[in-house]
């Protein structure tokens, strides 16, 4: 295998940086991200007070923005990773099933996919949160269960292709049970395209989480998330630019690196698109 180009290594390093930031947040953050000091509200980046130095300034309740950003990475990455896992698992399973079994299950599942894809995902998410109430687990379920159809489509199409290949017939004749064929013989062969979908979805999930938190329906205060920090900062754009610029830049960088990595992965795993 060829070594990945330097640009990709850089992206990987950025992504790894964010992951380390999220995992080691308590070690890296200079202050408690939840500690308010109402008398030190909206201080600009670099302010030094008796309590310490606020590298990125403070927010509208006097909390250290840098610490909140570092802890906010947790919310963004955790929600994105878990909801991608949920939708990847659900979507692939349904896709495999409808591509293998055909018949009624194919018709029911694929029409369900069509109807799910015709509903705006963010609207569906807002409605579900309105009914179920906000919370981390609910947020993951909502995002995961609204985004599975994309995986189903890909898994279905790939399963149809792979299932027709001679080695599957051979496995069947050798007496393999259907579940074994699906999971041992088909799934590994369609995993590449699914992984590519997952990377592009990962970026979207980060944005959805930020969007829902921006609307006040995602991660609940005081737990910081980039979306909610920006939402709070919107009221202070003219007075305290740092509240929107820093989380916005972090979000941009993270989503950009995930998407570029996804592109590169697609080119590597799919020889047809590489020659295009």
């Amino acid at each position: 295998m060829r070594r990945p180009p330097p640009a990709i290594l850089l992206l990987l390093a950025i992504l790894a940086g964010f992951v380390v930031m999220a995992l080691a947040a308590p070690l890296l953050a200079p202050y408690d991200p939840l500690h308010q000091s109402l008398l030190a509200r909206l201080r600009p980046p670099g302010t030094a007070l008796r309590a310490g130095r606020f590298l990125l300034g403070t927010d509208d309740l006097g909390r250290d923005l840098l610490s909140r950003l570092i802890f906010g990475a947790r919310a963004s990455l955790a929600v994105a990773a878990s909801s991608v896992a949920v939708s990847l698992a659900t979507g692939s399973l349904l896709g495999l099933l409808s591509g293998w079994r055909r018949g009624w299950s194919e018709i029911v599942i694929m029409r369900l996919v069509d109807s799910m894809l015709s509903i705006p995902a963010i609207l569906l998410a807002v409605l579900t949160v309105a009914v179920l109430g906000p919370g981390f687990v609910k947020l993951v379920l909502v995002l995961g269960l609204t985004r599975w159809p994309r995986y189903t489509r890909v898994a279905y199409a790939q399963t149809l292709q792979v299932a027709a290949l001679p080695y599957i017939r051979a496995a069947e004749m050798a007496g393999c049970r259907p579940w074994r064929i699906l999971l041992r013989h088909i799934l590994p062969n369609i995993a590449g395209p699914l992984l590519v979908v997952a990377t592009s979805e990962f970026g979207l999930m980060i944005l959805f989480e930020a969007g829902l938190s921006f609307l006040g329906l995602g991660i609940q205060p005081p737990t910081p998330s980039w979306g909610s920090i920006m939402s709070a900062g919107r009221d202070y754009v003219a007075r305290a630019w740092w509240l929107t610029v820093f989380p916005g830049a972090a979000l941009f960088l993270l989503v950009l690196s995930v998407n570029l990595l996804g592109d590169w992965l697609r080119d590597r795993l799919d020889p047809r698109s590489a020659t295009r």
């Binding site: 939840l34 500690h35 308010q36 109402l38 309740l61 329906l217 609940q220 205060p221 005081p222 709070a232």
Partner: peptide, 22 residues
């Protein structure tokens, strides 16, 4: 929102766990 979070912290300081539900 700021008032909610300020009250949340003040009650947290006396030993009550306040969960904000938006």
């Amino acid at each position: 929102r700021r008032l909610n979070e300020a009250v949340q912290q003040m009650l947290g300081e006396v030993g009550l766990k306040v969960e904000i539900v938006t």
